[in-house]
Design a protein around this nucleic acid. Structure first.
Length: 479
RNA sequence: CGGGGUGUGGCUCAGUUUGGUAGAGUGCUUGGUUCGGGACCAAGAGGCCGGAGGUUCAAAUCCUCUCACUCCGACCA
């Protein structure tokens, strides 16, 4: 096995990371560009990844008492305008519908960039009593934000996501909900996708338009840039007051409920690719892989080969392992090896006459490319265990990459001038003021990704202005 | 919104400098031989060269305008 055997069409990531990324998603047919700029077509293999994320998250949402619903795509301008910070935050990237057929509309309608406004409008009609609370609802949909620069999955003008919108009687409950949902997102990232994340709070500058507080999970990509992978907002009473949502409380008086919203999107798929992928293409953790095992028969016309391949296929399927048998005679085994490595299937089984003589098949791990002989006796158990091992090894590997690329700020001047210091996460102390935050962004291109829940005291003073430090923050350049 | 790059069979591109009526590889179809790291032979289908206008006997090629995509920056999940 030599480097020449790498999928030639994929640009090595050391050469050009952005090109590597686009090569991987296009060659794997995850997405294709559509006729409308910034709008991507998600093809079956890409959509299968989204379905896995949906299934995992949706189950967690339901388990914590949430129900799904659906709100309209279009929002009247008057509704969008009700919450001041919100409209200011989103107005620059809203798409408008101005005509119905050939008639100009009396009031233009915006294509939802997020649904707080329309949902709050409806909530205000429905909510009566504290007995109705909490409202725990979610919707799976797409939203449109007219982005200037777009990249498949990472930033597209339309993207698929879910948005949860809840109402609570008390501030504490809303805060609990906000943190609970962030933790579910962390599980999506770490347990399903083997993508380690730093969790914490956003600075005021970076928080959601109209939120009291925004919590985030941030992942580190292979090229040392950070990706905001999911956010959960405590919206306080900003929207419930603006939309006049009230309920009769236990005291018989009228109150505004406390409000949360939270979302993850198809952007996660971009993260998945950039955290685990290599120069051969995708590397998928078993739990999210649409297909976990592919069986490739060798010299399949020889007696017994296909029969044995089918036996293994059925045994794995029976065990609940997502398996494919590629008995396509047209392509050579070598071609298939490369193909499935590119597609990131966690395990490849090679089965030829020599193996059958030895009562075994060869199993090749995608993450390590390690080849092992696996006996037919207890075959499906061995493969099952191997999948589990791959899942945890991949998380560990990604975690190690993050740790190796997380540094402690020593000297801001050095950070400013030495570009290599700006790769990955940098922990720094921050006084909390907006001026310092803007300064860092302007001078280095790095932004404060979050104020992590896990705080360390690196120094008494802010690394940027020498005032008294309030928080330790994670600094990074971000997608 | 600023700066670069690219538009030619499905895909990757050559051809453009020096105008002469479109080519390679790959993929696709059919038949045969193969099969332990991208197999081989043979036959075949497929393109008004991003669009509009102009120069010319003649334009993928020269001129003008335009559109799209893409990468890098500033803004966002």
């Amino acid at each position: 096995m030599t480097d020449q055997n790498f999928v030639k069409e994929i640009t090595p990531m050391e050469v050009d990371f952005p090109r590597w990324y686009t090569d991987v998603i296009l060659k794997n047919e995850l997405v294709d560009y559509s006729p409308v700029k910034g709008f991507m077509v998600i093809r079956p293999y890409g959509y299968a990844l989204w379905e896995k994320i949906q299934a995992f998250a949706d189950e967690k949402f339901k388990a914590t008492g949430h129900k799904n619903m659906y709100f309209p795509l279009l929002i009247p301008e008057s509704l969008l305008n009700k919450e001041k910070e919100h409209v200011e935050g989103f107005a620059p990237e809203v798409a408008w519908v101005t005509h119905g057929g050939s008639e100009e509309l009396a009031e233009r309608l915006c294509v939802r960039p997020t649904s707080e406004t329309i949902i709050c409008h409806m909530y205000s009609k429905w909510l009566n009593s504290y007995r109705d609370l909490p409202y725990l609802f979610n919707q799976w949909c797409s939203v449109v934000r007219w982005e200037k620069t777009t990249r498949p999955f990472l930033r597209t003008s339309e993207f698929l996501w879910q948005e949860g919108h809840t109402l609570h009687e008390t501030e504490e409950e809303a805060q609990q909900e906000t943190l609970q949902m962030l933790d579910i997102y962390r599980q999506v990232a770490e347990d399903l996708m083997a993508m380690p994340v730093v969790v914490g709070r956003k600075s005021d500058k970076e928080k959601f338009a109209g939120a009291s507080a925004t919590y985030t999970m941030e992942a580190l990509m292979h090229d040392g840039q950070a990706l905001q992978a999911g956010t959960s907002h405590n919206l306080g009473q900003h929207f419930t007051k603006a939309f006049d949502i009230t309920f009769s409380g236990r005291d018989g008086k009228e109150h505004h409920p406390y409000h949360t919203s939270w979302g993850i999107s198809t952007r996660l798929i971009g993260g998945l690719i950039m955290v685990h992928g290599d120069n051969r293409g995708l590397v998928l953790p078993p739990r999210i892989a649409p297909t976990q095992v592919v069986i490739i028969p060798i010299a399949q016309k020889k007696a017994g080969v296909l029969e044995q391949a089918e036996k293994l296929f059925n045994a794995l399927k029976h065990k609940g392992i997502r398996t494919e048998l590629d008995d396509n005679i047209k392509e050579s085994p070598g071609w298939k090896f490369n193909q499935y490595e590119m597609k990131g299937y966690p395990i490849r089984i090679e089965l030829g006459p020599r193996d059958i003589e030895n009562n075994q098949a060869m199993a090749v791990r995608r993450d390590t490319l390690e080849k092992t002989a696996v006996s037919f006796d207890g075959f499906e158990e061995t493969i099952h265990e191997m999948l589990e091992t791959i899942q945890s090894d991949m998380l560990e590997k990604a975690l190690k990459h993050r740790e190796d690329n997380t540094h402690v700020m020593t000297d801001y001047e050095a950070y400013k001038t030495d570009e290599t210091l700006r790769k990955g996460f940098t922990k720094a102390m921050w006084c909390g003021c907006r001026e310092c935050e803007d300064l860092v962004k302007k001078e280095t291109g790095a932004s404060i990704r979050c104020i992590p829940f896990e705080q360390e005291k690196l120094s008494d003073k802010c690394h940027f202005c020498d005032k008294e430090a309030k928080h330790m923050v994670y600094l990074a350049r971000a997608y």
